Amino acid sequence: MRLFSRKPKSKTGHPGDDQLLGIIATLAGGTAAPREWIHYLYCETDDGAGLLEAAASRAGWDVHRTAAGAGIVASRADLAVNAETVRVQREYFEALASQVPGGEYDGWEAAA
């Protein structure tokens, strides 16, 4: 009998991302199929949102400003949503958000 059980190792480094990937894995195409993927970033100013928008667009994302104007919604549908792409894109968007005043990466969602 084991007294201590090991926690499963995180695939992405983020428990919430791992949980979402577990759900995606059960869908048609699983984590290998490209699907619509949406990321949310916010900041304090319209100028900051403009910087977020320009950078994400240069990186290949379709970008729209949030209704309030001080944030963006970045989407694309040509990437598989798997542990590697999630880890890389979370690192990218967190770093991008850190470059503007009040920048915050608020996470992602993917189409079923």
Score class of each variant (00 low, 15 high):
residue 33 A to N: 01
residue 64 H to G: 01
residue 89 Q to E: 12
residue 15 P to V: 00
residue 50 G to D: 13
residue 95 A to C: 10
residue 104 E to S: 14
residue 56 A to P: 04
residue 105 Y to T: 03
residue 56 A to K: 10
residue 30 G to Y: 03
residue 92 Y to I: 00
residue 58 R to K: 15
residue 94 E to N: 12
residue 104 E to I: 15
residue 51 L to E: 12
residue 110 A to E: 00
residue 55 A to E: 13
residue 62 D to C: 03
residue 93 F to M: 05
residue 19 Q to V: 08
residue 82 N to C: 12
residue 59 A to N: 06
residue 103 G to Y: 09
residue 47 D to C: 02
residue 52 L to C: 07
residue 2 R to W: 11
residue 29 G to P: 00
residue 80 A to V: 01
residue 31 T to Q: 12
residue 38 I to V: 14
residue 37 W to P: 02
residue 82 N to V: 01
residue 67 A to V: 15
residue 20 L to C: 04
residue 57 S to L: 06
residue 72 I to A: 10
residue 47 D to E: 03
residue 17 D to P: 00
residue 112 A to T: 08
residue 102 G to P: 05
residue 94 E to S: 13
residue 93 F to P: 09
residue 24 I to H: 07
residue 93 F to A: 02
residue 44 E to C: 03
residue 13 G to Q: 07
residue 105 Y to C: 08
residue 42 Y to I: 06
residue 67 A to L: 15
residue 60 G to K: 05
residue 23 I to D: 00
residue 60 G to P: 01
residue 112 A to V: 03
residue 13 G to W: 06
residue 4 F to C: 12
residue 106 D to P: 00
residue 20 L to Q: 09
residue 90 R to I: 02
residue 71 G to E: 04
residue 98 S to K: 14
residue 34 P to A: 09
residue 95 A to K: 11
residue 47 D to M: 13
residue 83 A to F: 06
residue 7 K to N: 10
residue 59 A to G: 05
residue 84 E to G: 06
residue 30 G to C: 04
residue 100 V to K: 11
residue 28 A to T: 08
residue 108 W to I: 01
residue 101 P to F: 10
residue 24 I to Q: 06
residue 20 L to P: 08
residue 74 A to N: 06
residue 35 R to W: 05
residue 9 K to C: 07
residue 60 G to E: 00
residue 104 E to Q: 13
residue 61 W to M: 07
residue 97 A to Y: 08
residue 30 G to K: 01
residue 21 L to A: 05
residue 73 V to D: 04
